[in-house]
Design a protein around this nucleic acid. Sequence first.
RNA 1: GGAGGGAUCGCAUAGUGGUCGAGUGCGUACGCUUGGAAAGCGUAUAUGUCCGAAAGGAUAUCGGGGGUUCGAAUCCCCCUCCCUCCGCCA
Length: 431
Amino acid sequence: MIDLNFLRNNPQLIQKAALDKNIDININHILEIDKKYKELSISVQKLREERNVLTEKIKRDPKQFDRKGAQSLKQKLEKEEKALSAVWEELKIELLKIPNVPAVNTPIGPNSKFDKEIRRWGKIPKFDFPIKNHIEIGKNLDILDFVAGAKVSGFRGYYLKNEGALLHWAVLNFAFAKMISHGFTPMVPPTLIHEFVLVGSGHFPFGKRDIYQIANPGKLESGEEIKNPIYLGGTSEPALLAYFADKILTEKELPIKICALTQCYRSEVGDYGKDVKGLYRIHEFTKVEQVVICRNDLKESEKLHQEMQSISEEILQELDLSYHVVQNSTGDMGAGKYKMFDIETWMPARNNYGETHSNSNLTDWQARRLNMKFKDRKGIVNYCYTLNNTVIASPRILIAILENYQKADGSVLIPKILQKYLNIEKITPSK
RNA sequence: GGAGGGAUCGCAUAGUGGUCGAGUGCGUACGCUUGGAAAGCGUAUAUGUCCGAAAGGAUAUCGGGGGUUCGAAUCCCCCUCCCUCCGCCA
């Protein structure tokens, strides 16, 4: 959500942001609705004032009760109030689509091809034998089963087994412990969440079809009515943020740093043809996420954004995986984002980097939707700023681990930092 | 799943049609007091919107939505959530 006054004063800026971000809004149309809304709200307020004065009079002197006059005023007010709430509903739909204005140095372009590489880390490994992709590796080592996965869960289903299952939890536990060592508060948030949570985070109304809806409005087979839909979170970020919804925090409490390790669910309906094989694009995965809530101070938020970035990079470095960092272009960054960096980790069988992390600064865009504020030292109430970043998502990161750590004999070494979690140094095919 | 009870200002509570945006206690902030602290005393302690240069004023909000009424925290209906007892259960 955007500040209404900012919208009124900077319509061109927002129209340009929408254009750059591929969001279909017409600012002039929105301003027209807004004008209507403002006029109506002033007239409603005046009518209410009239009513209150009249009510006061009746209270003081009930004998002077002008029933007819009072009733007609009431009717007039009711009519205007209805019109006002209708206009507000109309305006709200538009306001929820208004994007955040991206940082000035953001690469402008319609999609990820316009992302800008910032830096590279690590050596891209050279292999003196024909390499396998993670699907073959997983099958040979008996740690991955897509056939059974599809049978039991459908398209994009999978099983991890043996060392595959251990490696999954090892990398997640390692990442979770890392966050705690960096002072983040661990949480276990709900993954079943209400609509307002997803509207608040900005995943709605844009990405509605990417989210699984558990309870559909309408009727169950039993005939029972379902009133409020429930959704399966695609990330823990919305539930972590919504913990602070409708709160006024104190400046002392900030910045709030929290993390969670949760199962994540994504319908991927828009991506039927994409990455159809393997662990890259799946409906269900597990992720450690970091979320920071801070003051409405752009410099401070940029600093925290960098801190979050370096934690994620530290994890990849300790896993000794080669990666590069890109700054996302306007068309690739989502409506609410002010600035966004992705980390793409080297995946040998793709002979390319694959996205594994996404780090975003949303300034006050989410906080406005979630009504998340703080009181500063002067006692002034402001909206907070919010940031979020992937710490690690598995099993996607297993693609990089399995493919980068594979050996000629078909075995896969376990990254040093993870060995203590599995009590083994490598996975061998002889089973 | 069955039966009953509840949701009020950070917390606890008072409040059954106008005197209630809302009392009291705790907490918090500031001041007085003190060698310093505690206690004590005093003052303050919501948020949104609108009008206004400001001072200030208006308006809305007592879980959410709708209704009755000139007027609703208070009465009625629906929803959500919480609690107690019974049943089931990792």
